[in-house]
Design a protein around this nucleic acid. Structure first.
Length: 862
RNA sequence: GCCGGAGUGGCGGAAUGGCAGACGCGCGGGAUUCAAAAUCCCGUCCUGGCAACAGGGUGUGGGUUCAAGUCCCACCUCCGGUACCA
C-alpha cells in the first residue's frame, strides 16, 4: 500500500488500542468530579449471549446505532453510560459439556473472549471496566439475592405493591390453627413459591419451559415437542403485577406495536363471574355445588344453553352421574395424555363429553347440561364456562357438533347479518341489541353488560371480575448451567430460604452434566453439595433446580451502574443517578419475554425501595432483521451468512459500521449487499483523500487556512443540522447520505478550508470513529475527538439566497422560476405569471386563484 | 382466523399534504493509463421523439384537496407475531 493511503487495518488497530489504553470511555459516576455539570445519558444494548458462533451481522446493527448515539451525546456534553456484558448462562455451553465433559464455564469464557474481540474490533465506545458476566459468582450472588426478595415478599392487593413478608397480616382464624397453619399461610403468599401443577416438559431439552417459551406446542428454541407433566416447580407471582405492568406501558416511549404485544400477552379482560347451581337430582345446593364461570359477555346469559368445564376441573368427579362415569373418565384420560401440540391441532374439530349433570341458568331458571371439553382451559378464568353458541364461535362449533340448542340473544344492527344469524348460518359475536332476554330486551350490548353485572351483584349471583391471560412465571429449569436457588428442603418437607448473609451459593463442580433419566436435575447428582447439615444438626437438601436464563438478564442494566460492588447489588445513589435507561436498542424478539420479565423485577425492587424508578427502559428501539444477499433469513443451511470478521478484514470496521447504518431505516428488515459495503467504503476513501495526500501522507494541499465560500458554508451548516437531527431521530441512513453530498461537494473544491474539514471530521466521528480520529490527529490535534464539542450550526447560514420554485397550472408543472429567498408572495406571483410557459399553458384563461407556498411552489388554478 | 408492519426505478432506499426517485449500488459513455485496477467527469423512472418537448408513473379501485407516495374508504400481495384466554 502507498504511504498515506487509507490503510484502515492499521488505523483501526491503532485507535482501538488507544481507546483501551487511555480508558477513553471510562464513565464517571454522578458523584465523580468528571461528571460535574453534565446531564447523564444511559444508552443500553440488549444483553448478548456469548455463543460459540460469535457475532452475526445483526448484532453490530443495534450496537452501531447505540454507539453513534453514545458518541454523539458525549460530544454534546452528556455523561454517557454505555456498557456491555454477557448473558452467559444457558443451554449451548451445557449441551457441549454433556457431550465433551468440558466445564460450561470454560466454554463460556472462551466464547466471551471471542465475542469481546469481535466487538472491540468494531470500535464501540463501551466502558470495559463495567463489563458484567451473569455466570460470575460475584454477579449471580445478587441474582440470588433478588430471588430472596421475591421469596421474602408478598403482594398487598389493597396497596397494589409488594411488601416484606414480615409485614404480612395473619388472619385470626389461621393463627388459631397453630404455627404450621401460619407457616403454610405465609408460604402461600410469597412471590416466589413452589407449585406442583402440570408444566411444559420438553423431553428433548430435558427441562421445563415457561408458557412464553412454548410456541404452538413446541419449544421456542429448537422446536422440540412439549408435553404436560406434573412436576414440582418454582413460580414467580408475576400475575399480581399484571395491572401495573399494563399501566406502566403508558409512560414509555416504545413503539405502539411492542406495547401492544405486551398488552396482548397480559391480556386483560373485564367481565363477570357468575355462579350456576348444579341441578342434578340428589346433589345438595351448597357452595360446593355451584359452578363459577367467567364471562366477558354477561349480556348473553339468556343465551347460555349449556356449560363446559375443563377436563381437569375439580368438580367433574363430583357432578358426573353414575351412567356417565366411564365415558367421562375416558375423556379425561385422553385429554391428559395429549401434548399441547395435539391440543392445538384439534382446534378445528371440537371434542367433548356430557357428564350427565345439569345446572340452572341463574337468569331464567332453565336447566342446562354440563359437558367437559378440552377447549376450555383449566388455567384461565375459573376453568369453566357458560356456553352461548349464538354469540361465541367456539361454543357455536361445539353446539353444532353435539347438536345443542342455540338461542339468539343479541340482534346485529345489520339486517343481513341478523338474517344469517337467525338462520344459524353464522355466529355473531359483535355488539347489537338484546332480544330473548326478559326485562333486558332492547338494551344495547354495552348498556346491558353494565346493567346485568349490577343485577347479578344485587341478586348475589355474581360480580364484576377481571381476568388476565398472563400466568405466573415458571421460574425453574432442570439444568446445571444456571443460578442455583438459595433454597433448602428440610427433612420434614419444610422449605426455607438461605439467609442473605450466606450468599452466594456457588454451583458445584461436576464430572457429569447429563440430565438424569428421572427428570431430576443434574445437580441432584452432586450429593456433597446437595446434602447439608443444619446448625441444629438436622439434615436438609439443597434445591436442585436452577434459574432460567432470563434471571440474569432481568437486572443486568442495574448492575452496570455499580458492577463491582460486593456489598450490595448496586448502590442506590448510582441507580438513582443513572436510571432509567434513556435509550434501549435491541431485537424485537424480546418484546414479551425479557422486556416483561425485567419490568416485573424492576417493579418488585421499586416496591421494596431498592430502585427509585418505576420503569427501567424509557425509550426502546428495535433494530430490524438483516437478511442474506438472497433476501432470505440468514442461516447456515442456506449458506448466506455474512461473517462480520470477514467484512472487517476486507473493508474495515468503519465501513462495516457505516454500511449497517446506510442500508436503510434501523427498524426495517433489509437484505445485505457486499456491493453496498463497497459503496460506503469508497465514500470513506474519498473522505480520506479529501484530507490526506496519499502520496506523502501529509495533509492534502487543498486543505488550507482559508475562509469558506458562501456555498460551502451553507452546505456545511445544512450538514451539521441534518446529521445532528437525523441522529436524534434515528435516521442514520439519511445522515450518511448528507455527509456524502458534503464530501462530493468539497472534493470538487481546490481550496478546502481547514476549519470546514475539521467540522466535517467531527460529524463523521460517531459513525466512523477510527478514520475520524486519525484525520483529527493529522489535522494537528493531540487529543482524542471523543469529547470534542459537537459542531453547532447557524440557521441563517443554512438558508439559500435564491430558491427555485415550480410553477404549476392546475397541479401540473409548467415551468420553474428562480426568486430571492426572501421574495414576498406578490413578487413570486408576479414572476410566476411572467413566465412564457405559464402564459402558454394558461392559454388566455384568467387565473381563478393563485396558491403560493413560499420556498415550495406556485399553483395557478383556472 | 386475529393482531402488527410494509408495498416507490434493474437493486437498497429518499421525500413537514407542495417539483417523486435524494444518497448509494448496478449499468452505459468519456477522461486518465502502454494496458488494467483505482480515481475523476457525464448520463441513467417508463413511453414517443435526433432534440426541444409531450404523455404516463409510488400494489389495485374509489374519495377528500388548488395539490396525494403521504389523508379517508374498500381490496390485493408480502413479511413478522399469535393461536380455542370465554
Amino acid at each position: 500500500m502507498l504511504y498515506g493511503s487509507y490503510d484502515f487495518g492499521q488505523i483501526e488497530k491503532k485507535w482501538q488500542d488507544y481507546w483501551l489504553a487511555n480508558k477513553t470511555f471510562r464513565t464517571p459516576d454522578g458523584s465523580d468530579a468528571d461528571a460535574a455539570g453534565k446531564p447523564k445519558y444511559y444508552v443500553l444494548d440488549m444483553f448478548p449471549y456469548p455463543s460459540g458462533a460469535g457475532l452475526h451481522v445483526g448484532h453490530p446493527e443495534g450496537y452501531t446505532a447505540s454507539d453513534i448515539v453514545a458518541r454523539f451525546k458525549r460530544m454534546k456534553g452528556f455523561n454517557v453510560l454505555h456498557p456491555i456484558g454477557w448473558d452467559a448462562f444457558g443451554l449451548p455451553a451445557e449441551q457441549y459439556a454433556v457431550q465433551t465433559g468440558t466445564h460450561p464455564a470454560a466454554t463460556t469464557q472462551k466464547n466471551i473472549a471471542n465475542m469481546r474481540r469481535q466487538i472491540q474490533a468494531l470500535g464501540f465506545s463501551y466502558d470495559w471496566d463495567r463489563q458484567v458476566d451473569t455466570t460470575d459468582i460475584g454477579y449471580y450472588k445478587w441474582t440470588q439475592w433478588i430471588f430472596l426478595k421475591f421469596f421474602n415478599s408478598w403482594f398487598d392487593d389493597a396497596q397494589q405493591k409488594a411488601r416484606p413478608i414480615e409485614e404480612l397480616p395473619i388472619p385470626d382464624e389461621i393463627k388459631a390453627q397453630g404455627d404450621e397453619a401460619v407457616r403454610n399461610y405465609i408460604d402461600s403468599q410469597r412471590l416466589a413459591y413452589e407449585s406442583h401443577a402440570p408444566v411444559n416438559w420438553c423431553p428433548a431439552l430435558g427441562t421445563v419451559l415457561a408458557n412464553e417459551e412454548v410456541v404452538g406446542g413446541v419449544s421456542e428454541r429448537g422446536g422440540h415437542p412439549v408435553i404436560r407433566k406434573p412436576m414440582r416447580q418454582w413460580m414467580l407471582r408475576i400475575t399480581k403485577f399484571a395491572e401495573r405492568l399494563l399501566d406502566g406501558l403508558d409512560e414509555l416511549d416504545w413503539t405502539e406495536s411492542i406495547k401492544k404485544l405486551q398488552q396482548d400477552w397480559i391480556g386483560k379482560s373485564v367481565g363477570a363471574e357468575v355462579d350456576f347451581v348444579i341441578a342434578t337430582e340428589g346433589t345438595e345446593n351448597t357452595e360446593r355445588n355451584k359452578i363459577r364461570v367467567f364471562t366477558t359477555r354477561p349480556d348473553t346469559l339468556f343465551g347460555a344453553t349449556y356449560m363446559v368445564m375443563a377436563p381437569e376441573h375439580k368438580l367433574v368427579d363430583e357432578i358426573t352421574t353414575p351412567e356417565y362415569k366411564d365415558a367421562v373418565k375416558r375423556y379425561r384420560d385422553e385429554a391428559a395424555r395429549k401434548s399441547d401440540l395435539d391440543r392445538t391441532d384439534m382446534s378445528k374439530d371440537k371434542t367433548g363429553q356430557f357428564t350427565g349433570a345439569y345446572a340452572i341458568n341463574p337468569v331464567n331458571g332453565e336447566k342446562i347440561p354440563i359437558w367437559i371439553s378440552d377447549y376450555v382451559l383449566i388455567s384461565y378464568g375459573t376453568g369453566a364456562i357458560m356456553s352461548v353458541p349464538a354469540h361465541d364461535e367456539r361454543d357455536f362449533e361445539f353446539a353444532k357438533k353435539f347438536d345443542l340448542p342455540i338461542i339468539q340473544v343479541v340482534r346485529p344492527d345489520d339486517p343481513e347479518l341478523a338474517k344469517e344469524a337467525a338462520a344459524e348460518r353464522l355466529c355473531f359475536s359483535g355488539d347489537g341489541t338484546a332480544i330473548n332476554s326478559g326485562q333486558f330486551d332492547g338494551l344495547s350490548t354495552p348498556e346491558f353488560k353494565k346493567k346485568i353485572t349490577m343485577w347479578l351483584q344485587e341478586q348475589g349471583l355474581g360480580q364484576k371480575a377481571v381476568n388476565y391471560k398472563l400466568r405466573d412465571w415458571l421460574f425453574s429449569r432442570q439444568r446445571y448451567w444456571g443460578e442455583p436457588f438459595p433454597i433448602l428442603h428440610a427433612e420434614g418437607g419444610r422449605v426455607f430460604a438461605m439467609d442473605e448473609s450466606e450468599l452466594p451459593l456457588g454451583l458445584p463442580e461436576m464430572a457429569d452434566y447429563k440430565p438424569t433419566d428421572t427428570g431430576a436435575p443434574p445437580l441432584a447428582k452432586a450429593t456433597d453439595w446437595v446434602n447439608v447439615t443444619l446448625p441444629d444438626g438436622s439434615k436438609a437438601r439443597r434445591e436442585t433446580n436452577t434459574m432460567p436464563q432470563w434471571a440474569g438478564s432481568c437486572w443486568y442494566y442495574l448492575r452496570y451502574t455499580d458492577p463491582k460492588n460486593d456489598n450490595v447489588a448496586f448502590d442506590p445513589e448510582k441507580e438513582k443517578y443513572w436510571l432509567p435507561v434513556d435509550l434501549y436498542i435491541g431485537g424485537a424478539e424480546h418484546a414479551v419475554l425479557h422486556l416483561l420479565y425485567s419490568r416485573f423485577w424492576h417493579k418488585l425492587l421499586y416496591d421494596l425501595g431498592y430502585v427509585a424508578s418505576p420503569e427501567p427502559f424509557k425509550k426502546l428501539v428495535n433494530q430490524g432483521m438483516i437478511l442474506g444477499e438472497d433476501n432470505q433469513k440468514m442461516s447456515k443451511s442456506r449458506g448466506n451468512v455474512i461473517n462480520p470478521d470477514a467484512v472487517i478484514e476486507e473493508y474495515g470496521a468503519d465501513s462495516m459500521r457505516l454500511y449497517e447504518m446506510f442500508m436503510g431505516p434501523l427498524e426495517a428488515t433489509k437484505p445485505w449487499s457486499m456491493q453496498g459495503v463497497e459503496g460506503v467504503h469508497r465514500f470513506l476513501g474519498k473522505a480520506w483523500r479529501m484530507v490526506v495526500d496519499t502520496e506523502t501522507g501529509e495533509l492534502n494541499a487543498a486543505v488550507q487556512e482559508a475562509v469558506a465560500d458562501e456555498e460551502t458554508t451553507r452546505l456545511l451548516h445544512q450538514t451539521i443540522k441534518k446529521v445532528a437531527g437525523d441522529i436524534e431521530g434515528f435516521g442514520f441512513n439519511t445522515a450518511i447520505s448528507q455527509m456524502m453530498i458534503f464530501v462530493n461537494h468539497l472534493t470538487r473544491q481546490s481550496v478546502r478550508p481547514k476549519s470546514v474539514i475539521e467540522t466535517f471530521v467531527l460529524l463523521l466521528s460517531p459513525f466512523a470513529p477510527h478514520i475520524a480520529e486519525e484525520l483529527w490527529q493529522r489535522l494537528g490535534h493531540s487529543e482524542s475527538l471523543a469529547y470534542a464539542p459537537w459542531p453547532t450550526f447557524d440557521e441563517a447560514l443554512c438558508k439559500e439566497n435564491e430558491i427555485e420554485l415550480a410553477v404549476q397550472v392546475l397541479g401540473k408543472i409548467k415551468d420553474k422560476i428562480v426568486v430571492p429567498a426572501d421574495a414576498d408572495e406578490a413578487a413570486i406571483r408576479q414572476t410566476a405569471m411572467a413566465s412564457e410557459k405559464v402564459q402558454a399553458a394558461l392559454d388566455g384563461k384568467t387565473p381563478k386563484k393563485i396558491i403560493v407556498i413560499k420556498s415550495r411552489l406556485v399553483n395557478i388554478v383556472v
